[in-house]
Amino acid sequence: MLDRLFDALPALSAPEQFTELLARPGLRIERIVSSGQASPPGFWYDQPDGEWVLVVQGEASLRFADEDQPRQLKAGDFIDIAAHRRHRVEWTTPEQQTIWLAIHYAAG
């Protein structure tokens, strides 16, 4: 368990890291640390729960299947992703870690 959001950050060359910070019925909070990672070609997330994400540090591009253009996210930007809304990460900046705070919550 992390005591601080910026504790135990992986190296820039490390694989993407997912750390669960809190789990309760219908709720899960995780820290995601990316450094240049993106969703595999042709892959779309289609999650049964809603997800609220905040970019704490870094930059990313998030694409939704129902939108023509990807959304560019920088530190401080957040978005609420409805359950089953297909989306993918187009890119995260490789020059620094992109730290996401993701709150997964039960839909309905």
Rank of each mutant, 00 (worst) to 15 (best):
D3S: 14
L62C: 11
I32P: 04
S61R: 12
V55E: 12
Q17T: 09
R86Q: 15
R63H: 15
L2M: 14
A38G: 10
I32L: 12
K74T: 03
Q17F: 07
P70I: 05
P40F: 04
G42K: 03
R31Q: 08
P40C: 05
F18V: 12
Q47D: 13
R71D: 08
S39I: 05
R71T: 10
Q37V: 08
R86F: 04
A65H: 02
A23Q: 15
V55C: 13
Q47R: 04
I81P: 01
W52Y: 11
Q57A: 13
L54T: 07
A14H: 06
G58R: 03
D77F: 05
P15A: 15
W52I: 01
P40Q: 12
E16H: 08
R85M: 04
P70G: 06
H87Y: 08
Y105V: 00
A75K: 03
D7L: 04
I32F: 06
I81T: 02
V33G: 04
A38T: 11
I29W: 00
V89Y: 05
W44N: 11
W91R: 15
A82Q: 10
G36E: 09
Q57F: 09
H104T: 09
D66T: 07
V56S: 12
W52V: 06
I29S: 09
P48F: 09
G108Y: 01
P15E: 14
F78I: 00
H84L: 02
S61K: 15
D77N: 10
A75M: 07
A83D: 08
W52Q: 09
I103L: 12
T19I: 05
H87M: 03
V89K: 03
P40Y: 00
D3W: 12
R85H: 11
E67G: 00
F78T: 00
T19Y: 02
V89M: 12
A83Q: 06
S39A: 07
A82C: 01
S39E: 09
I81S: 03
D80V: 00
D66G: 02
S39L: 09
G76E: 05
L5P: 12
L62F: 15
I32W: 06
M1H: 15
T98A: 12
Q17Y: 00
A82T: 01
